[in-house]
Amino acid sequence: MKPMWQYCMLLTLCIPCTSFRKARNMDARYFSKDTYSILVIKSKYQLTLFDSTGEWIANYPVVFGNKDMGDKLMQGDRRTPEGVFHIVSKRRHEKWNRFMMLDYPTAESVKRFKERKAKGLIPANAEIGGGIGIHGTWPHEEYAIDRYDNWTEGCISTKNTYVEELFSILPVGTKVEIRR
């Protein structure tokens, strides 16, 4: 039987060469739009990243526009829309570090907007709005995320280091589901 120190040495050599974690910082061009998906739970102030098999990868703290966790009704209400969206573009942003634009409003969003308007739940002259995305914070104001201070116009905001990580791996087309 081999001495215990030989087994320990073998493990010491093998473990550093083995990856037990998923690749998180690989270039997004190597991934299809179905490689990742995002679930945002507004009531938990949480963005969760999943791989293509639905396996959890990471959670990120996020904030929104309005403390009212309701669905976006119209432009200017500062609410974050609910539903299934996709990242349609990505760019560096002069104020919020990185910006990943979502395809809001979708056909489903427009349908709900028109129904609410017809029921008189929103003014007849209201507009649906747009420009919703996932982005960072103002420079040196990441404390807003730690304190859960909702400050956006309806977007999803997280710390700049987190949005940079997401930006680097999420391809255009990534599914983003937002729930209350």
Rank of each mutant, 00 (worst) to 15 (best):
P3N: 15
P3I: 12
M4C: 04
W5N: 11
Q6A: 14
C14G: 09
I15D: 07
I15V: 13
C17H: 02
T18V: 14
F20L: 13
R21K: 12
K22L: 03
R24A: 13
N25P: 00
M26T: 05
D27G: 00
S32R: 05
D34C: 01
D34W: 01
D34Q: 11
Y36N: 01
Y36M: 02
I38Y: 11
I41H: 04
S43F: 08
S43N: 14
Y45Q: 08
Q46H: 03
T48Q: 10
L49A: 08
F50D: 03
S52Q: 13
S52K: 12
T53N: 08
T53E: 07
G54D: 13
E55R: 08
N59V: 05
N59Q: 07
Y60L: 05
F64H: 03
G65D: 03
N66A: 04
K67F: 08
G70P: 05
K72Y: 00
M74Y: 07
G76Y: 02
R79L: 09
R79E: 00
P81K: 08
H86I: 04
I87Y: 03
I87D: 04
S89V: 13
K90P: 11
H93K: 09
H93Q: 11
E94V: 06
K95V: 11
K95L: 14
W96L: 15
M100D: 06
M101S: 15
M101Q: 15
L102H: 01
L102C: 01
Y104L: 11
P105A: 05
A107I: 03
E108D: 13
V110K: 10
F113I: 04
E115P: 02
E115D: 15
A118W: 10
K119E: 15
K119I: 01
G120T: 03
L121D: 07
N125Q: 13
A126W: 05
E127K: 14
I128T: 01
G133M: 11
P139V: 03
H140N: 15
E141H: 15
E141P: 06
E142W: 10
D146S: 15
W151S: 05
C155R: 05
T158Y: 00
T158L: 09
K159S: 11
Y162W: 02
V163E: 12
E164Y: 02
E164K: 12
E164M: 05
E165R: 07
L166P: 12
L166Y: 04
I169M: 15
L170S: 08
L170N: 06
P171D: 14
V172C: 10
V172Y: 04
G173W: 00
T174N: 14
E177C: 07
R180Y: 07
